[in-house]
């Protein structure tokens, strides 16, 4: 509302577009800081505890999360094709690739859920378990939010001419966010599962 009001009275204000991207990047810097905080906590525990993970922690299975990782990582590439499509003004291409990304994201979340339910530890079992659930859970929250953004893009893209090769901030935002979530996962996976 405000934006349109300004546009009416001033000729200058078309600049908002790239500012949003800049703002998003700043926001993601703040987000990285949160994850940085959580990861450092994990690393601190790992280095100072004599036995890590504490005795009695069930071995984490690697196969399912491994597949999950592959899915999430490749979804980033799939998504990129979506953006490339809208750059060519190909809205149906955008829909297709974003649809596939959403599906992959959904599978990832389902996989997480499956893992949660089949692990023999709960949030309060021990320090490692708490870290595990909080880290993956917090990341899962971000995946859900990213998924939500993708769905929003899909929904909007069904409106005629909402996204064009010139103007598709929503698409770009969703993509950058998704890549961010992806990178966070890779770090998390290495930290929690592999090391």
């Amino acid at each position: 509302m405000q934006g349109s009001a300004i546009q009416k009275s001033h000729e200058t204000t078309h600049v908002h577009h790239d500012h949003r991207l800049f703002g998003l990047v700043l926001f993601l810097i703040a987000e990285s800081s949160i994850f940085l905080g959580l990861f450092s906590a994990f690393i601190v525990y790992k280095t100072i505890m004599p036995i890590w993970p504490p005795t009695g922690t069930p071995e984490l299975e690697l196969l399912l999360p491994g597949i999950n990782t592959l899915i999430l990582v490749s979804s980033s590439f799939v998504m990129h094709k979506g953006k490339a499509a809208i750059k060519r003004n190909d809205v149906s291409g955008l829909k297709l690739w974003f649809g596939v990304t959403a599906l992959m994201g959904f599978v990832f979340l389902a996989g997480q859920m499956y893992e949660y339910f089949h692990l023999e530890m709960g949030l309060t079992t021990n320090l490692f378990a708490s870290c595990f659930y909080v880290l993956t859970g917090f990341h899962g929250l971000h995946v859900s939010f990213g998924l939500f953004m993708i769905l929003a893009v899909l929904w909007r893209s069904s409106k005629e001419g909402h996204y064009t090769s010139e103007s598709h901030f929503g698409v770009e935002a969703a993509e950058i966010y998704w890549h961010f979530v992806d990178v966070v996962w890779i770090i998390l996976f290495v930290l929690v599962y592999l090391l």
Partner: peptide, 21 residues
């Protein structure tokens, strides 16, 4: 500020959910 948020979220888990970060 986000690091404080992280700390407070963990503290909150300790407080409410019974974890022991």
């Amino acid at each position: 500020t986000p690091v404080l948020a992280a700390a407070l979220v963990l503290l909150s888990f300790d407080l409410i959910a019974g974890t022991s970060f």
